[in-house]
Design a binder for these strands. Structure first.
Length: 501
RNA sequence: GCGGGCAUAGUGUAGUCUGGUCAUCACAUAGGCUUGCCAAGCCUAUAACCCGGGUUCAAAUCCCGGUGCCCGCACCA
């Protein structure tokens, strides 16, 4: 489906809609409705269950969304958040200042103010690379963070966090003590981050307020031990830099062992690529052939990353591969910076007395983008029928309960619905329209099971006390005693765990 | 941010060029009849010209501003 069509469907069904819609909306902000809120929460829970399931030493924390200025100064976000730009007043093209001035200032323009850069531009009579005009100007730096007047006087500066990762770095010292004074130590955060994006676009793909799920794994720089043998034969779809430079868009399927051997990547890194891939393919149930690991080159990589593969998924609605997560080897950049910023030393002493500054492997996941991706990848048109093939454990409503004839079977159906709900199963009750219409509504909402109460259920014949259980994907129907329903449905709602060696 | 395009019920649309009927059609939604396990049929109801200003006897239609969306460029630390 095209983006517009998919968004119309999601809006109509109450999955999501623009924030402040009645005032005309607000760029880059969306609200989740009943279906969307549940789906998003289930995706977050699936992520948490899977990635915390990788180790007993990985923990979820829930830190504040506001960061004092000292934090973002140390992290580099205050100065590095945006590269200074030069814009052409004649043709309105914009360029990175360091690119335009690379011959004049080969060392770049870091640390210069807009006025200083403008002075260099004019002193050297720099012309627009696009149209040749000399009318270049340098706008004041635009920081992508939302600044806050913090405290009563408003003189203290604070910022909405631009990424959740910083919260984990801030927590490291405390978590070292709370934990067992051992590495590896994983700190996960699922929460909102905020960026004042210049051009929010593509619905959930460029938001000004968005939800990230990130796991920071702190490990001994001499090595992060992983049970690599358990994954060495797993094939991953990988698009590395040389292949990209040859103009290829499609990934190659290579084994984990080859990525380590010929590919020259660390075992711990590839091991986490495998589990990330399995999460997308086996938990979210995205088709494996839509997924690729996209290696970032030296120039594309964020400055703090030593190795960076984005995990990208091909979505039809946006006609291309979109980044839905990433695996970042950040080295000791973050603890070093916060050590300097806070005037502390985050070196830790391991058993045996060795002192190390931990390195960080970051697994990051965009929750909102994956809400969209589940819709894009898992909604299928089947003739007139629209079916959202969500895995049962992600479905906002697990089971729809219908009376075949509301007047005759309604009270029994309500009783059954209440009973299932009491077992912790999310239930939707519907007694309007024809039975086919109710099935269709549930298909569209991703509900995997429907239970229909009919004359047999309430009658005295052999079908007394049994109902029809209809499954979304195969449209198969089977007859079940009411008392066995919860036991039949509940196992399908359990979130998958990663296989541990 | 820049350039181009677009904006009509819940959804998709007709009408806009060429101003003039208290705005078309379908689906969806709600109620009724009928049917009774996969969006059937009939009847009824609800429901819209993005916001603000201007031109005009008259604006969904023309003009200006704003907001939002789409595409391209730039950006995505």
């Amino acid at each position: 489906m095209k983006s517009d069509e998919l968004f119309a469907l999601l809006r109509r069904r109450g999955v999501l809609w623009p924030t402040a819609e009645i005032y005309g909306g607000a760029q880059g902000l969306y609200d989740y409705g009943p279906l969307g809120a549940r789906l998003k929460r289930r995706i977050e829970e699936a992520w948490t269950t899977w990635f915390l399931g990788l180790s007993n030493d990985y923990y979820l924390i829930d830190p504040a969304e506001i960061l004092p200025e000292a934090v973002v100064r140390a992290s580099g976000h205050l100065e590095n958040f945006t590269d200074p730009e030069v814009v052409c007043d004649a043709c309105h093209s914009a360029f990175r200042a360091d690119t335009v001035l690379e011959k004049i200032r080969p060392d770049g323009v870091d640390g210069l103010t807009a006025a200083e850069i403008a002075a260099i531009v004019h002193a050297n009579r720099v012309h627009c690379p696009h149209c040749g005009s000399s009318e270049l100007s340098v706008p004041p730096p635009f920081n992508l963070m939302f600044g806050l007047d913090y405290g009563v006087t408003g003189h203290e500066r604070a910022y909405l966090r631009p990424e959740t990762a910083q919260s984990s770095y801030l927590a490291f010292a405390r978590m070292w003590d709370v934990g067992r004074h051992a590495l590896p130590l994983g700190i996960a955060v699922v929460g909102k981050a905020y960026r004042n994006e210049i051009a929010p676009r593509q619905v959930l793909f460029r938001l000004r307020a968005f939800t990230q799920a990130e796991l920071q794994i702190f490990f001994d720089p001499r090595g992060l031990p992983v049970p690599f043998d358990a994954v060495r034969e797993e094939r991953l779809p990988v698009l590395r830099v040389p292949r990209r430079e040859a103009g290829e868009e499609s990934p190659e399927w290579v084994t984990a062992a080859e990525l380590v051997g010929k590919g020259n990547l660390p075992e711990f890194y590839v091991y986490h690529m495998v589990h990330t891939f399995r999460f997308f393919r086996d938990v979210l149930r995205y088709p494996g052939d839509r997924i690729r690991f996209f290696e970032k080159s030296d120039t594309e990589r964020a400055f703090y990353n030593r190795i960076q593969f984005d995990i990208e998924v091909h979505v039809e609605s946006l006609a291309g591969y979109k980044e839905l997560g990433a695996v970042h080897y950040r080295g000791d950049y973050d603890l070093t910076r916060h050590g300097q910023g806070a005037g502390k030393d985050f070196t830790v002493t391991l058993t045996g007395g060795t002192r190390v500054l931990p390195h960080v492997l970051e697994l990051t996941f965009g929750v909102d983008r994956n809400v969209w991706a589940t819709a894009d990848l898992l909604i299928a048109k089947d003739g007139e029928r629209t079916v959202w093939r969500l895995p049962p454990y992600l479905a906002p409503v697990a089971v729809g309960v219908f009376p075949l004839i509301p007047k005759e079977h309604g009270s029994e159906a309500v009783r059954i619905a209440n009973d299932l709900a009491a077992h912790g199963i999310p239930v939707g009750y519907d007694d309007t329209g024809t039975i086919g219409k109710r099935y269709a509504r549930m298909d569209e909402a991703g509900t995997p099971f429907c239970v229909t109460v009919d004359g047999g259920t309430v009658g005295t014949g052999p079908e007394h006390g049994t109902v029809t259980l209809r499954e979304r994907d195969g449209r198969t129907q089977s007859r079940w005693p009411v008392g066995e329903l919860a036991g039949r449905i509940a196992p399908a709602l359990l979130l998958p765990w990663p296989a541990r060696a």
